[in-house]
């Protein structure tokens, strides 16, 4: 398996732990990735909220580069994934969009380069069974709330590789690691996403609801596959608790960090120390 890898800006900064653990886990599972050369930002939420042409042209620019690599694109960031898929969707459905983007890029692109999210690759290309067979240290006894957020599952006609209202691929992966995914209703509730900087109060309220529900469902931690969900639930957890009421400290590891630990990779390689709410205690049994 070989993919053109689109890291996205946050993988090298606020989600460097996601970046490190993604690379480590893919290497351990024999998935080859090659970074798209000279990739640039997908425009993220600010682009589509500001200029619809820009919102398609920035992803298309990167997808053109990937086309020359002759491999499907994979990204781990849920926001990048959403923007790359949305651009493809628009370009495939409207000739006017193809003309406009062709004019802006000075190159033609028809939206045909396949784009996969890391979870799609892990659950459906590598396969849950193959992951199960690779587990060296099962995460037995760990109760995990799998939190998908918005952009991995919505809207289904753009991103769908799982059910829009009740996705399960992350739960299946977590179960394959020997941990116990909890059955809970807030898998796809919004954490406030890009409002993190502009309206932190709203983000704290929404994150607090999600963490509260995860705890009520009996989870020890919440696992995610989106840099922004992680930042909101982890970095803003202290503020959320201060404002909306006490909660036991709830670690928010990336799913790739859980996978890495179960595969027996050293915690340092997975940048576990970069989490704000420390996760060490969760795995005391694992390391022994």
């Amino acid at each position: 398996m070989r993919y053109a890898f689109y890291p996205g800006c946050s993988m090298e900064a606020t989600a460097r732990d996601f970046g490190a653990s993604t690379r480590a886990v893919l290497a351990a599972l024999d998935v080859q990735i090659e970074e798209i050369p000279d990739w640039s930002c997908c425009g993220s939420t600010p682009a589509h909220r500001t200029n619809t042409a820009l919102a398609v042209a920035l992803p298309a620019f990167n997808l053109c580069k990937a086309r020359d690599m002759g491999a499907p694109v994979m990204t781990a960031c849920a926001a990048c994934y959403s923007r790359l898929r949305a651009a493809n969707h628009k370009l495939r459905s409207a000739a006017t969009e193809r003309e406009r983007v062709g004019r802006i890029l000075g190159a033609s692109y028809d939206g045909s380069v396949p784009v996969h999210h890391l979870l799609d690759v892990l659950a459906n290309h590598v396969g849950v069974e193959a992951i199960r067979r690779s587990v060296a240290r099962p995460l037995a006894g760990l109760r995990v709330a799998c939190y998908y957020g918005c952009l991995l599952s919505r809207p289904p006609e753009v991103v769908a590789f799982d059910d829009a209202e009740h996705p399960e691929c992350m739960d299946q992966i977590v179960a394959a690691l020997g941990a116990s995914p909890v059955d809970w209703p807030y898998k796809t509730e919004c954490c406030g996403a890009g409002l993190s900087i502009t309206n932190p109060d709203v983000v704290c309220r929404l994150s607090h609801r999600i963490l509260t529900m995860a705890r009520q469902a009996g989870a020890d931690c919440v696992t995610v596959a989106c840099p922004l969900c992680q930042l909101n639930l982890d970095m803003r957890q202290a503020d959320a608790v201060k404002r909306y009421g006490p909660l036991p400290a709830t670690p928010v590891p990336f799913v790739t960090q859980l996978i890495g630990l179960a595969l027996g990779l050293p915690p340092k390689e997975l940048a576990l120390g970069a989490l704000m709410v420390p996760a060490g205690k969760l795995f005391s049994g694992v390391r022994a």
């Binding site: 589509h48 909220r49 809207p155």
Partner: peptide
């Protein structure tokens, strides 16, 4: 219109 988080639940 600015508080909207672009979560796409409405569209879905």
């Amino acid at each position: 219109i600015w508080l909207c988080a672009s979560c796409e639940a409405c569209t879905t």
